[in-house]
């Protein structure tokens, strides 16, 4: 069970109180009334779903009820940070990214790490 820092409650809370809510920073187009099928596809269907550093939405459903965003590494499951909905994608330092990478050295049982260029 993850421990997730809620930026509104200002503390780490157990995952049981949260719901994942998909990829972050997918803004709803302003021209929904006359959107082209291509733009609709991009908005509604296409997600990066990448392995590595992800920006994702969570809702503190059984807590303060707020949606917020998180930067997390999908292999190590480690959070870099969480931030309030509406705030811009944070600039992450190399140190911040390095801190959540799974270790490079290791066994074939575990995949090698994502290279830094990839992570961004």
């Amino acid at each position: 069970m993850l421990l997730i820092h809620c930026p509104y409650c200002e503390e780490d809370r157990p995952e049981l109180e949260f719901h994942g809510a998909g990829e972050a920073h997918m803004e709803r187009p302003k021209n929904m009334g006359d959107i082209s099928p291509e733009d609709f596809e991009k908005f509604f269907f296409i997600r990066e779903n990448r392995k590595g550093l992800v920006f994702e939405r969570w809702r503190h459903l059984h807590g303060c009820g707020r949606f917020f965003n998180a930067a997390r590494h999908s292999v190590s499951d480690k959070f870099i940070c969480t931030y309030k909905a509406g705030e811009p994608k944070p600039e992450l330092s190399d140190e911040q990214i390095a801190a959540v990478l799974p270790p490079a050295k290791g066994t074939p049982a575990n995949e090698p790490i994502v290279s830094k260029g990839d992570a961004k």
Binding site: H19, R66, F67, A85
Partner: peptide, 11 residues
Amino acid sequence: LNMMEDYLQTE
């Protein structure tokens, strides 16, 4: 309710 809150809070 979740969908309504989602739009309200994030859009």
